[in-house]
Design a protein around this nucleic acid. Structure first.
Lengths: 297, 297
DNA sequence: AAGTGGTCTAGACCACGAT
DNA sequence: TCGTGGTCTAGACCACTTG
């Protein structure tokens, strides 16, 4: 474990002088390349290739050390070295492993925490974010009762779960070839007894091999928790597109509204670590007693 | 200016040892309670009263130094010491003024920048965020064309601007007494020639004394820019509640849709620095060719 | 060349949680 | 008591912007 850690990472330094000398000795250390690197900087694409980010300038093209560390941590997360809910090594351990100072590791972790990939807990450690522990609330669901009394039970009603060949639009969104297998799930969420959300969900069949209606109904807790623990697919980010639409007869029947009633349409594309889309979801929300809440900064 | 700066701020330290000694002298400085606090912590409400945050524990009740600095900067912002678009003093100047290290100021500024109150620009300085320079986009408007070609001109059509006594619900939302004067504005936004957004806006009359239809039509640029430069009211944060509704005859006529067409209803409450609500806005969006875009993390 | 923010380090001490 | 993250400092160097 930590053995290989000492070897592999050694981030490609792009020219940094460790002024780790007693201050009185630290006079004009102009050593051109006291660092192991300098040579390795050229061939090794900076940012260690881990970040999906583009290299903007073909010239010198930088990546701060802490960004490189961030990429390395990200890679470990993606590789499953630490599972959701587990603690990652302490800052000091990581610093030793990557051969940088604690402060640099801290800054890398700070950014990952700001992106909700990690969760810091003082005195305990830093943990991999998870959807599985959120009994309080579905992390990505922004639908909120208008009055707090409406905070009753949420019941899930599974309507359908099948495998099929992906229609063109679904395939495109999920970065698949038309005709690739996808899992299609249809379900209704009831809020305090009222049918409120009708979801259609598509997942790449490849990633969700053993997913069946039984597994879905058995599992207690949010669906993303199931995906995470059973299939190793972690939903990290998502984009939503919202529109107002009218209920067609099928929607109306399932949600218990009149045909032509207004519904909030929410199309969500969820992505994993490397920004690969891994779920497409089309939701229809009743908004007479609930609203979609958003904060602007 | 900088004179008073030297006196007034001196943040209430809650116990800190300036170990500003040469490292060779810094041996086991175990002064038991060089920490002033414990006493001063009680009377001086931590967070310097600036933060709207609650004090959770009645006990010791801490506020890290950088949080106190943040509050002080926030107060200067609120007092208008630096205007939107202007640069604030450099980190070193602020460090000197508050008698803390640059790193501490940096952390305070980092948070304010993360909240979009300040904008860092490398090599130039740190600037107060503004709505006035955003010719590209309205900072708070999340409505996006479905296809990028739809990115045509935005035309504003002012329908009405009057003063009136606040109805109960408006007053409550804006933290006013029922019957207080409010400014009511009604307008339509046209996107590439199509009427797309119908806004009803309410503002506290008190804060917007000279606001007239003329001022509104004359001013080029976003309305929040006008509020900022002409009335000194800066919109910092906002919460939105989204719903799907049906067009009533009046809405339908103004937006050029059928009665009963689906519309996205967006109720926005915008706040200033101290979280005081200063604008209530009810928008109706056509979403046939546009959608409301949101990112989840 | 000077000034600003950005990165990196090293080391001290604190608050919190588990032991 | 120990280990963890959290705060604070001080100082060095880097990159970007402006004169």
């Amino acid at each position: 474990m930590s053995l290989c850690g000492a070897i592999q990472p050694v981030a490609p330094r792009l020219g940094h002088i460790h002024c780790a000398l007693p201050s009185d000795l630290c006079i004009a250390v102009t050593v051109p390349s006291s660092h192991p690197s300098a040579a390795s900087a050229a061939d090794n694409t900076p940012a260690a290739g881990g970040e999906g980010d583009v290299v903007n300038t073909p010239g010198p093209s930088f990546s701060p050390l802490y960004q490189q560390i961030k990429s390395l941590i990200l890679r470990s997360l993606q590789a499953g070295e630490w599972k959701p809910g587990e603690a990652i090594p302490s800052e000091l351990e990581l610093a030793a492993r990557f051969k940088v100072s604690q402060g640099t590791v801290r800054k890398a972790i700070d950014e990952l925490a700001a992106e909700n990939l990690l969760v810091r807990r003082q005195g305990k450690g830093t943990f991999v974010a998870t959807h599985a522990e959120e009994t309080v609330q579905y992390r990505f669901l922004r639908l909120t009762p208008d009055s707090p009394e409406g905070n009753g039970l949420v019941k899930r009603q599974l309507l359908d779960c099948r495998r099929l060949r992906a229609p063109a639009d679904i395939a495109r969104a999920l970065n698949l070839k038309t005709g690739d297998t996808v899992v299609e799930i249809r379900r209704v969420l009831h809020f305090s007894g009222q049918p409120t959300v009708l979801d259609d969900i598509w997942l790449p069949g490849q990633l969700f091999k053993g997913l069946t209606a039984e597994r879905l109904t058995e599992y207690k807790g949010p669906m993303y928790g199931l995906f995470e623990t059973e299939f190793g697919v972690r939903m990290i980010r998502a984009e939503e597109k919202l529109r107002a639409v009218l209920a067609d007869p099928a929607d109306a029947a399932l949600l218990g509204v009149e045909v032509g009633a207004p519904l909030l349409s929410v199309e969500r594309l969820a992505r994993t670590y490397d920004d690969q889309p891994v779920e497409l979801r089309r939701g229809l929300y009743r908004t007479e007693a609930h609203h979609y809440r958003n904060e602007l900064n």
